[in-house]
Design a protein around this nucleic acid. Structure first.
Lengths: 119, 119
DNA sequence: TGACGTACTTACCTGTGGGTGGGTACCCCA
DNA sequence: TGGGGTACCCACCCACAGGTAAGTACGTCA
């Protein structure tokens, strides 16, 4: 596989969690799926400005393998695929919320720019 | 600088937090410093089996720049440098705890190996 | 006298995360 | 009739994260 060799031996829980979340867009995908409940591929692509199709697919595949997202394929033409969070995905998102709050505080502290994400 | 161009525009809080934590050993350093309160360079190196000196220094420097760790240099020979967490570092660690719990659960679920970390 | 420890620095090298861009099979709409 | 949309796959490429190894200035211990 060209993707990741992960799931290696971990030092601690944070290590294991980071392994699953690390990836430029993974936390954003998590957030997006948590917000909308279920999203089609193209909706995700449009919701994550700047993401390349390749990376979006690769990340979604890895997150599916990791049991975080569910992939529902409708055998239609044109193709239709719906992504949603699994139970583990939802709980991971919940576990990330405190980190998100810390980050938001940090953005205020250092006065960093924020990307505009309006649907 | 050969290090990082980070602090870029962020999509959300998680993005900003991940920016600061991403790095193979950073969460471990955080955990180690939180556990021991204050540690010398060589103590950290020994506490993180497998870390290279270069990466440990680079990570510590970045975390210092990011205001997470404090670096206290004692003008002695042989040299003595003590690292500890700042207020922000402590709060980041607290924000990571729920993620750590999720990861520990995940390790149990998938039955991953854990590295033995005994002092 | 020399091996070891302290806290680094510097140079060099490699693996891979991620980007670009093209192709596909099919359908709808103008 | 052809341009656009769907959800991908594939080949190629590059920057950079991270590893390896050597060197440094000084002190202690055997």
């Amino acid at each position: 596989m060209a993707t990741s060799a992960r799931r290696g031996p971990y030092f601690c829980g944070i290590d294991a969690a980071m392994d699953v979340v690390s990836g430029k867009w993974k936390s954003l995908i998590l957030w997006e799926l948590n917000n909308y409940g279920t999203r089609r591929f193209a909706e995700l692509r449009r919701g994550l400005p700047g993401v390349s199709e390749k990376m979006l697919i690769q990340h979604l595949r890895e997150m599916e393998e990791d049991g975080l997202v569910h992939r529902e394929v409708y055998r239609e033409v044109p193709p239709k695929v719906e992504y949603s969070l699994t139970e583990d995905g939802v709980s991971l998102n919940a576990a990330l919320s405190s980190l998100g709050r810390w980050g938001t505080e940090r953005i205020k502290r250092i006065g960093a720019e924020k990307v505009d994400l309006s649907p």
